[in-house]
């Protein structure tokens, strides 16, 4: 990767990265990708998030779902670990708590494949700095 040599460089880079992400996630086009984020801080990993992440990575591919699975830090819902955020193309992200392998399977089959809601959604209870 090229070095960031000036503020203009950084801004260019940011715009490119942002548009890549939004193309990937927000296009209503069938090729839009599902994005799964697994909270993988110490707390999540201790509750089994690694297994859940592997399950998503392996099974989404096996079941022919075009998706990106990434890790994030702590989402703050320690009582409900492991937590997983799922974003379907062109939709608002949804966070699920207490996601074990069984729940992950249900999320793939019902929510990701058919768009049917699945129990265990943690409601958004914060504001982001952009909205405030």
């Amino acid at each position: 990767m090229a070095k960031v040599k000036s503020l203009a460089d950084l801004k260019k880079m940011k715009e490119k990265l942002q548009s890549d992400i939004s193309l990937r996630e927000n296009s209503k086009h069938p090729e839009g990708m599902v994005r799964v984020k697994v909270a993988m801080a110490t707390c999540g990993i201790a509750s089994g998030a690694k297994d859940v992440m592997e399950f998503f990575t392996v099974n989404l591919q096996k079941r022919n779902v075009d998706a990106i699975v990434t890790q994030t830090g702590c989402m703050g819902y320690c009582y409900a670990e492991p937590t997983v955020e799922v974003k379907l193309p062109g939709q608002e992200p949804v966070v699920y708590g207490f996601v074990d392998i069984k729940k992950a399977d249900e999320i793939i089959e019902k929510y990701i494949k058919q768009g049917e809601p699945v129990d265990g959604i943690i409601p958004v209870n914060y504001e982001t700095i952009d909205k405030k």
């Binding site: 990265l17 984020k37 990434t70 994030t72 830090g73 989402m75 937590t83 504001e127 405030k132």
Partner: peptide, 24 residues
């Protein structure tokens, strides 16, 4: 809604091992 995420603005949203996501 009582919470505002300032210090935790990226925690749980970006991949901590990707500088690209932080720059975005």
């Amino acid at each position: 809604i009582k919470q505002i995420r300032v210090a935790l603005r990226n925690c749980g949203f970006i991949n901590p091992e990707s500088i690209d996501e932080y720059i975005a």
